[in-house]
Each structure stands twice: as C-alpha cells, then as structure tokens.
Design a protein around this nucleic acid. Structure first.
Length: 839
RNA sequence: GCCCCUAUAACCCAAUGGCAGAGGUAGACGACUUAAAAUCGUUUCAGUGUCGGUUCGAGUCCGACUAGGGGCACCA
C-alpha cells in the first residue's frame, strides 16, 4: 500500500487500509445485499444505478455516481427494505472495436478484461450490489433477448426498414440516430455529421410520441424538472393544420402543415424542401415549368447539390442568409384561389411535416427574410400593433385581430385558427393536425461489436425474421474479419455466417449484416436484472410484477434525452404487448453532477486528470465516498480542487475513536447505570429525526453534517464528565456507525464490531427517535422591534399570546428600543416571537 | 434570439417567510511534545450579486437587471 495520510502509527490503531482488508472477505461471506432470498418478507425497493460502459477502470465520475447510488440503496436496507441494487455492463459499442483496430485486440477479450477490472474495483469500493444478478449486454444470453424484442417490435409493425437521408459520421463510418447528433457533431467523436441516402432499420418511436410527452406529467416532482423540460423539447409537439394546395399541372394536391392556418390569407408563396421527392418531381418535366424549363432544372440541380454538401453545422447557423430557387410552378391557395409561386429553399426540411410550407412573410420571420431577399410580396393579415414588416424586416409575431382575410376579419388569432380549420374541413381542403420534432429511431449500425439484427433477406421471400427457436443469432468470431470502418458492416465478410437458407422457402439467402444501436441494449436492461440468467424469457413476468418498476434511478444528466427516452418507449411498447403492467420504467430519478478539476472536466489532454486509484490509495475508500456525499447537493458538480478528502479521512478517524473509547471503557469494566446522559440522548433523538429526512430528500451533504454534529456532541461527552462508559454514549456511537455505513462502510463496520456487535452494520436498522425527548418544555422567545432583534428570553412552550406580549413589553431592552415612538402593531407568534411595529 | 437553474464568510456549503451559521476546508491562538506531525480545545471572518416591490418581518415570495452554468435554436 502506498503512503497515506492515515498513519498506521496512529496510536489508537485506526488504519483505513487494514480495515478494508479486514472486512471485504467477511462481507463476501455475509452477502448482506443478496435480494433474492426465499421467503424474504421485507418490503421491496428497486434502486438502480446506470450501468457503466467497460472502457477501462473506474474513474472519478463513476466514483461519485456509485457512492451516491450506494447511499440511497444502503439507506433503504437500513430502513428494513429488501433492496434490489444490481449492476451490469453496457458492454457492446464502438470503443471495444476501436481498441481492437488500434491495438490488434479481440473486442471480446478487451471488453471482458475491462469488466473484470471494474468489477474488482467496485468490490473494493464497497458498492452494495447484488452480485448474483450481474448482466453483460455482450453475452449471447443477454442479446438474444434484444433480438427477441426486435422481432416483437417487427411483428407489431414498430420495426421497419426504409431508405432515407440519414445522419452519417464520416469518422465512425456509421449512421447515427438523431439523438446522437449534438449540434451537428457526432456525439461520440465530435466529427461533423453529413447526410447519406441509405436503407436502414428504424423503431417507430414517433407512434408513441403523444404518450411519451403526456406521461411526463406523471413524473413531475419525482424527476428533475430539467430532464422533463429537455424531453418535452425534444419530442416537440406542435398543433396546427394540414392544408391541401392544388398544384397546376399535378393531379394530387400538395399538403402543407402549418401552425397558423389563421394567416392563410397572408400566404404569398410556397416553399418545398430541396432534398424532398416533391421538389425533384415538380421540376422533372421541363414542359410544365414557367419560362425556361431547362435553366430552372439546371438551377435546381445546382442548388440541391450545394445543399447536399452543406453539413448540419452550416445549415443550423441561424444567421445564415436565406437561399433558394424558383421552381417555375404554381399552387392555388384553397382559401382564396390565389396563385402562389413555388420555391425551394433549404430552410424547409424534407422530413418534417410534409416537406413543404405555405409562406406567410408578414407573420413569420423566416418567410419574411426569404421574401425580402427575393422580392416576394408581403401581406399583413393580423393587426398586431407592430410596425410594417416590410419596413422593419421584423415579422409581426404577436396576437391581434384578423384583417384582409375575408370571412376571418375581426376574429382574434385563436378564434381565427379554429375558424380556418373548420372552413377548410368543410371544403375538404384541410384538417387539424399535429407534428413532432421527434423522428423515428434509427437503430441499425454498420459495425461489428453489437447485436446482429435477426432478419434474413431472401430474393423471393423478402425480409424474413429469424425463427424464435434459432435465436440467438450469435456474432461470428472477430478473427479474420476486417473491423476497420468502411461504411458497410464487417459482418458482410463473414461468409459462412451470412449465407443461410431462407427460413421460409429454403433457397439461399443472406443474413442482415447490420448490428443494433447499443441504446437498444440499455432500453430494457433494468428488466433483465429481475431474471438475469433466464434462458426461457427476457424477464420473468412474476419477478417483474414483484420488483418493477424501478423505484429510484441514479445516473448522469448526460442521458437526459437518449437513454431515458428510449427506455420509456420500450416500457410503453412492452406494456402494450402485455409483458409489463406499468408504463413508466423509472419512478424517481436522481441526476448526479460531474466531478471537475479546477473548473473544467477532467481529461488527460487538459492535464487535470485525477486518478481514482491514486485517491483511493492516498485516502482510502471511505474517505473518497464520504467526500463525494459531503461535497454539496448531489446534482451539483464537484470541483475536486474545492473538496478535502483528507478532511473526510480526519473526520472518519475522529468518529472511529469514539467507538474505540467506548470499547476501552467497557474493557476496563467501567460501571454502567441508568439510561445515560440526558443531553446525549436528546442529541441522538434530534439526529434520528433529521437524518432520515435529509437522506430521503437527497440532502446527503446535510445528512453527513448531522453525523458530524453528533460526533462532536459525543466527543465532548466522553471528554467531559459523562465518559465513554455512559449507555447513552454507547447508543449514540452505534447510531453513528449505522449512519456512517451509508457513506463509509469499512469504518462503520469496524466501529460496530468494536461496540460488541456481530459484523453486519449494513443490516442493523436505524433506531426510532424517542419522541418524548423531542418535546420541549421551554423555548427561547425573541422580541423584535420593527423587525430588529431587541431581546430574547426563555418561556414555556404553551405560553399564551397575551402572556408573551406582556413579557415583551416588560423588557427594558424592548421599551428602550421603542423609546418615544408610537406602537402601531404588535405581532405575537407564541411561543417563538413578538414583533412590535412602530410609526 | 428563446427558456430554465444558480448567486450566503477567504473557499465548499446550511438555514418550514421569524435570532443569517448546521457542518467542513483554510487561517490564528492555546494545550500536549525536546520539537514537529497527529490529536484536543478556543477563535477571526458575511447581513445573503444589484435595484425595486409585497409583508409586522424577506437569504427565502414577486419584478427588473448583472454574472456564471445548462437546455433549445430555420421543426413551418
């Protein structure tokens, strides 16, 4: 063991490193956190930490997350609950493959080695995990059920393949889900994401958009409001209308989505997305185009080319000037028969609504910018009191009364929206509609280290699901496969694996070579913990009924959208399929902050990396865990430069010495009589009352402070006239050990045994506060004059208002403060306070 | 540009609308020690980012502003 601030020469004998070595093997025997004991009558509590990705050993971020999750889990154990607190590994994914490519390692071996290292670190870190329920998503016994779920989704029409423009990371050489593109950059490697037309697998998450949004209301108060807001924004529901515009020379009308059907009279042109099928079709026949058809086709082709080249970062820049091309075609406004020119511009997105809009420049900033650039007309149809948009360049976005709008004139905006929809519906020209910002979830990836998609492609039968009895479709060995990214799946080269007979007709067919997004794995793992080794079912419904949903989820806010949205989606699908009886997977959510160093995220390149293993070697496990809990509110970031693990270690030694002193006093046979010191008993009762509330409200830092307070009280008692042999002291130190078991399990266990107990402080159970000690006979009342404190004195708790008022006016200090001023008002809040207002 | 969160002592942080300090760090002093460390004890330090409002009373509620952090951002 390396140098430590805890000198082993500490004459009292406290050595964090010795007690770590001492208790770990004992706990391995005791298994205090086994949750599957037969006949366990304790009430259940499912506490879940987000499982780690095995990218190396644990780091400071893990240390915080698992320390805080452990406080919650161990708290409920102390409260007498049968706590399910499992752990596993999110073991598929690119880093394993990248390591394989870079260092010539097998992704399998690399992954399992890292898992072993993390598992061993978690054991030393004293995480209260139930080690009988470990899962690894890269085990065939796990991902087999990914495939089963995929087929359940497929059979329900919730998994489908389509060709579309998808996000493409040129560095990872794979497609990305919308959620994995952050500000136009790849979430994983920060490369600029481009678009590519590919046939890919999707999960139809949009079909659940309404429920995913509406059910967030039921989580209000139990999830951080920040996460709820982010999910609401991401789903992005908007209400409006679909409006049919007849296009000259086209049989089918074009449908346009708008949130402002009230401004239909203000539409002066139409815009279609350049990369939409509609745009291509509209210009395909040169003879239909107004003016020189050929030059319009050329201009469009050039424009489309430029749009395709632009990446998302350029496209998302809001200050970018508008661009576009006139397509030489016209649409008819259904509300007034006006002829509107059709343009194409990249501010209209192909995959939102119908890829086409009606432009109302007077009341929409984007349309106004476009109209001003290309000299298109602007017509105000809503009197908002704002200046003329043509003059100011600012669209009139406010509310008001309709003008220039035929039958809608005089109506308020809200009324006009309804009236317009009614009018359109009657004519068959439109209807109310809603749209979502959320897109379907692209789940196929062109990489090796993932779950194979269980579909076989047959020339004559098409897509055929792999029959259930042939699952799992196991990944072929990586050996001999070129894993380097090249835009197509490495699995395509595993010819023995790829070529299979069609399950339906027996003709030669090929397996789908893509693998699933790893977010599929993590969308249901909380259910797999309930029957982690089952080969018959993904999860046992009886176990699910007994344990699920998760009562308390703990993890980083980085997953606020991705993982949490997908897991919610899966849960709702599983509910609809009759596999679970709840619709929200995580009843309560705690997001812990990050661990920083000197104000910024730790990283090797910044040179501010703090290694967890160094910290553990220097201060011991308990001190680091305690530091994490004590640093501040759990959702706040911890700056490691601001905290003092040495201070935590010092406190733990101080607490430990209390137990040591009590033990010593017992050994010398000090006589014990009575129920012990009243002041210590009262301090203990106060502590018991406050501590539980603090932990349940995630105020771990305050909870720790309460333990420190009690330690200080007991220290004084021992050093003073009360002494270490006092029964109240003994009792208080036992409670300190139990409370500390949430934060510093080694120290707590050692204290507990020193006090004469069998090992197992984690299961000891908190004492109940003695209510009779909390009843106060007297209280200090304060007297304010004009809000300023002037006197205070002790009064009986049941003092009457009149008596207290009298006492206040009897006070010389008070009368002096009043002086010659007139008393205007006297507020009496018996027994605590009197406030005398003067004028 | 829009929305949300935060602002208390040198530092990290507490405080059901009722005495601004629970706890810790750092500092100072003392005890113990030949000395130092450790330990124990004592102790300094703010009127709560700014301005205004509600109230008998505001760190706490309301409004505006400043600073920091986060989210969303051509979604029709």
């Amino acid at each position: 063991m390396s140098e430590s601030t805890q000198t082993p020469a500490d004459e009292t004998g406290y050595s964090v490193f010795d007690i770590q070595d001492k208790w770990l093997p004992v706990w391995d025997e005791l298994r205090p956190f086994a949750s599957g004991k037969a006949g366990d009558t304790r009430p259940k509590k499912y506490v879940l930490d987000m499982f780690p990705y095995p990218s190396g050993d644990l780091h400071m971020g893990h240390a915080e997350a698992y320390a805080l999750g452990d406080v919650v889990a161990r708290y409920w154990v102390q409260k007498g609950f049968n706590v399910l607190h499992p752990i596993g590994w999110d073991a598929f994914g690119l880093p394993a493959e990248n390591a394989a490519i870079k260092r010539g390692l097998d992704p399998r071996g690399w992954t399992y080695d890292n898992i072993e290292q993390q598992r061993s670190s978690m054991r030393r870190y004293a995480c209260s995990f139930d080690w009988d329920r470990v899962i690894r998503t890269c085990d065939p016994i796990y991902y087999r059920w990914n495939q089963w779920l995929f087929l359940e989704f497929y059979n329900k029409g919730l998994a489908y393949r389509k060709n579309s423009m998808v996000n493409w990371c040129p560095s990872c050489q794979t497609v990305l889900a919308n959620e994995q593109v952050v500000g136009g950059l790849c979430e994983r490697c920060d490369s600029a994401v481009t678009k590519k037309a590919l046939t890919q697998w999707f999960f139809k998450v949009t079909e659940y958009a309404d429920r995913l949004l509406d059910d967030l209301d039921s989580l209000e108060g139990n999830w951080p409001s920040k996460v709820l807001t982010m999910q609401r924004n991401w789903i992005g529901r908007s209400n409006g209308a679909d409006v049919k515009f007849v296009v000259e020379g086209r049989d089918e009308p074009v449908i346009v989505y708008t949130t402002r059907p009230d401004t239909l009279f203000g539409a002066t042109f139409m815009v279609v997305a350049p990369d939409s099928a509609l745009a291509a079709e509209l210009v395909s026949d040169a003879s239909l185009l107004e003016g020189d058809g050929n030059s319009i086709q050329t201009a469009f082709a050039e424009y489309l080319d430029g749009v395709k080249k632009a990446n998302d970062i350029e496209r998302l820049a809001t200050d970018r000037p508008k661009s576009g091309v006139f397509l030489g075609r016209y649409a008819i406004n259904p509300i007034n028969g006006e002829r509107l020119p059709i343009w194409t511009a990249d501010y209209v997105l192909a995959d939102y609504g119908h890829g086409a809009i009606m432009a109302v420049p007077a009341h929409d900033q984007r349309d106004l910018d476009f109209a001003r650039k290309f000299g298109l007309p602007v017509r105000v149809v809503l009197e908002t009191g704002e200046a003329d948009p043509i003059e100011t360049g600012l669209a009139a976005a406010g509310d008001g009364v309709l003008v220039n709008s035929g039958p809608l004139n005089g109506l308020e905006k809200a009324e006009a929206i309804n009236a317009a929809i009614t009018f359109l519906s009657k004519e068959g020209n439109g209807e109310a509609a809603k749209n979502f910002r959320l897109r379907d979830w692209l789940i196929s990836r062109q990489r090796y280290w993932g779950t194979p998609i269980p579909i076989i492609h047959c020339d004559s039968c098409g897509e055929i699901p792999v029959p259930a009895d042939q699952l799992p479709v196991e990944l072929p060995a990586a050996e001999g496969l070129d894993l380097s990214p090249k835009g197509t799946s490495p699995l395509g080269a595993a010819t023995d694996w790829v070529n299979v007979p069609c399950p339906k007709c027996g003709a030669p067919a090929k397996r789908d070579t893509d693998t699933m997004d790893t977010f599929v794995d993590s969308s249901w793992y909380f259910l797999r913990y309930l029957s982690p080794n089952s080969t018959d079912v993904a999860f046992d419904p009886a176990e699910a009924a007994a344990w699920a949903p998760v009562d308390q989820y703990v993890g980083g806010v980085t997953h606020a959208i991705l993982h949490l949205l997908y897991a919610r989606f899966f849960t709702k699908v599983l509910f609809d399929l009759g596999h679970v009886n709840f619709e929200e997977p995580f009843t309560r959510l705690l997001n812990q902050g990050m661990v920083l160093m000197n104000g910024s995220a730790m990283s090797k390149s910044r040179g501010n990396l703090v290694r967890l293993s160094d910290q553990l070697d220097e201060h011991g496990v308990d001190a680091i865990r305690l530091t994490m809990a004590f640093a501040g509110p759990p959702e706040d970031d911890i700056d490691w430069a601001d905290v003092s693990p040495a201070g935590s270690a010092k406190f733990l030694a101080r607490a430990w010495r209390l137990a040591n002193d009590v033990e010593a006093s017992r050994n010398i046979g000090a006589s014990v009589s009575g129920s012990g010191d009243a002041a210590v008993r009262k301090a203990l009762a106060l502590f018991l009352r406050d501590f539980s509330a603090n932990i349940e409200n995630f105020k771990f830092n305050v909870g720790v402070a309460k333990v420190m307070e009690l330690v200080n009280v007991v220290r004084k008692a021992i050093d003073g006239s009360v002494g270490a042999a006092d029964p109240a002291v003994h009792e208080a130190v036992e409670e300190i050990a139990k409370a500390l078991s949430l934060f510093a399990p080694y120290t707590a266990e050692d204290m507990w045994v020193k006090l004469g107990n069998q090992p197992g402080v984690a299961l000891a159970g908190f004492r109940v506060a003695d209510e009779s000690l909390l009843v106060e006979n007297s209280i200090v009342a304060v007297v304010q004059v004009d809000g300023k404190l002037r006197d205070k004195f002790e009064v009986p708790v049941d003092i009457s208002e009149d008596a207290l008022r009298q006492l206040a006016f009897d006070s010389a200090l008070v009368t002096r403060a009043i002086g010659d001023k007139t008393v205007a008002n006297v507020i009496v809040r018996a027994p605590k306070l009197v406030n005398i207002a003067t004028k």
